[in-house]
Design a protein around this nucleic acid. Sequence first.
DNA 1: AATGAATGAGCCTTCATTCAT
DNA 2: GATGAATGAAGGCTCATTCAT
Lengths: 218, 218, 218, 218
Amino acid sequence: MVEAIDAAQVATRSQILEAAGEVFAEVGFRDAKVRDICQRAGVNSAAVNYHFGDKETLYAEVLRYSQARAIEKYPPLLDVAPTAPPEEKLRAFIFSFLLRVFEKGPLAWHGKITSREMVDPTAALDAIIVDKIRPMAEQLRGIVAEILHRPVTDETVRLCSFSIVSQCVFYHHCRPVLTRLYPDQPPLDTVGAARLADHITRFTLAALHHLPVSTTTP
Amino acid sequence: MVEAIDAAQVATRSQILEAAGEVFAEVGFRDAKVRDICQRAGVNSAAVNYHFGDKETLYAEVLRYSQARAIEKYPPLLDVAPTAPPEEKLRAFIFSFLLRVFEKGPLAWHGKITSREMVDPTAALDAIIVDKIRPMAEQLRGIVAEILHRPVTDETVRLCSFSIVSQCVFYHHCRPVLTRLYPDQPPLDTVGAARLADHITRFTLAALHHLPVSTTTP
Amino acid sequence: MVEAIDAAQVATRSQILEAAGEVFAEVGFRDAKVRDICQRAGVNSAAVNYHFGDKETLYAEVLRYSQARAIEKYPPLLDVAPTAPPEEKLRAFIFSFLLRVFEKGPLAWHGKITSREMVDPTAALDAIIVDKIRPMAEQLRGIVAEILHRPVTDETVRLCSFSIVSQCVFYHHCRPVLTRLYPDQPPLDTVGAARLADHITRFTLAALHHLPVSTTTP
Amino acid sequence: MVEAIDAAQVATRSQILEAAGEVFAEVGFRDAKVRDICQRAGVNSAAVNYHFGDKETLYAEVLRYSQARAIEKYPPLLDVAPTAPPEEKLRAFIFSFLLRVFEKGPLAWHGKITSREMVDPTAALDAIIVDKIRPMAEQLRGIVAEILHRPVTDETVRLCSFSIVSQCVFYHHCRPVLTRLYPDQPPLDTVGAARLADHITRFTLAALHHLPVSTTTP
DNA sequence: AATGAATGAGCCTTCATTCAT
DNA sequence: GATGAATGAAGGCTCATTCAT
């Protein structure tokens, strides 16, 4: 009985969270209206205040929730063995990254919200960075360092990991431009993500394996 | 007399344009307040509506103005001869791209605004795409096609040009994340842009020159 | 069993009543929040509506309760004999009035709430007037009439009783001003109330005993 | 021309100030609605924000304005000569006090608002105390000291001035009670104020002239 | 041409109250 | 009997826009 009550409350929270995710993804924090979110969630306008305190806290929760669920569903190394060669890990890292970003359905807003947050950060970004982004960045640097046979602190390692991540986020950050430049391209689905991952991996590995020794390192 | 008035009017327009550029770059279109812009420009709060009609039109003007001035100052191929090898053109393309993005001073807001526009587009984006972005995209595809010895319509050419552009825009799109992840890194200046261009060019050329033949072409 | 439940219920009611008294005294009826009262009472937010119907009814109960307990604790004539001289009764009346008003501890809010009610009355005031205030006013008029050797309906008698009551309520009604004008004065305790009662009594008796015959009676 | 504009603006401010004074007097700060005030003033709901910033600042302005106008219209010593005997000054002080408090028409809300402020002070009270109340309190203490032939710092002087002020404010602070206790009494007008001033003055002078030497002064 | 005053629509938030359990 | 979740009405404030001068 008590569980039923709790379940109902949790359900309401979840509905708000889902609806808020969609709305924030569509129009951004500022233009998102609490009324719209609540209407879409099928709850009263005051429910946000009751469950989350205010709009800003709700947003932070949405961000955290979205990150957690996306990484839980698509962990950075998918099902690659810890002993696999770094090239394999790199491919998995890239593929899972794209899968998170191109996720459809209930998590579709993850990519959008994260993109917005990167361009126009709120206070909620800091928590995400510490919890999720920094660990993933270090993981990637480790993979690159292994491929390059260099220490993880090497500047080239950092620059190359930037080059990798940049290719992954690009399709989301610049999606509005891409859909306008190439309107014929179908929206990316899981298959498209696989092909894209393939390109990025081949492009990156070719670069990493044949990168000339830097002449500008101080 | 009329010319003097016109000159004054043009000056006012310019002041608003500059102030609006700064404000839009700092807080984005939605959070920018007309009052703030006018105050920073030293003009009356009604001046925006008087000179530009409404806030949205002002924004479109700012975007167009910013693109035009940035590309005028840093043309995509800088001073590379049309007969130069494509590798040279690529380096120039990347360098000029970064210079536009990392520009300081009166044009500093160009990169920021463009980034925002890509993640959260307004109606103004379409005009920019037709006028500026599409031509540059085609130019880049031409360079890549030349390096790869493939037709410009080839999918690999398109994907590779994405990989290039993505590395260029990354440092601006994700600057909030980068400054949090690596707070010790100094903000990029012209020298930093040169070193960054060097890395991206070497990374990209290594990739392009050693890219294995695609096995996934449908 | 039923009695135990009733006892529990009565206890809850009491807790709410006490908490409400404090809150109403501190911030007034309008600014008092039902949630705060319930939180301070350690009960559920819905308890007020459950036990008292609504906020207004609760307030009326608090007012009635506060008056009853205050007068019960400090009856207007304290332990003065009915046959005592009127001057003695007057001193007792004034002293008990001040004691009620300056009461500390659980009844501390009596004075504050009554003051608020006089300046900004609610519907609850009427009941208080009929039950408590009118009888006390008549009692005071009787004392004054006896001292002045005039009928209780005499206008001078009424005006003089106003002059007496006004001195008693002043220290509470205007406490915010007094504490700002004379920040060094300690808050009034029982001793202070005694000295104050002494002043008011002497001031008043000097006035009553030497009041010139009115020349303005219509 | 410019003057006409200024005049219009000042007129709007004044209308809001007057309307706000009425509404604040009627229902108090908390229950007063900005929308009601603006409607009564015949201006837009945003006008308060435009002219005063927010509701609280508007209230502070109303309080200041009300005090200034009331004291300007009825200065504490009216037209009594500085060389007049202190008894004469006392009568003038009391009469002007009552006139301010019982003022009808456009300044009718002065008394009400001041009363509310004394029982339930806001941050605005402090300014009023420094500007108006403290000077008047000192003025009264001077008069009383002269009558009693004692120094102004004497405690009896302070207590007696309290006894005087208390009688003056009583009719306003407790008006809700008085109108309920004596519903037949007409509301006080200028004539009523004169008779009341007469009573308070005679009562007070009788007290001051025959006050026994205090036996409780430490 | 340009301004300062004024507007009105709309949003977030508060809070007493109600309802299902 | 008592609770915690949920509601709905309403209020203060923001801000792009308009208007008279």
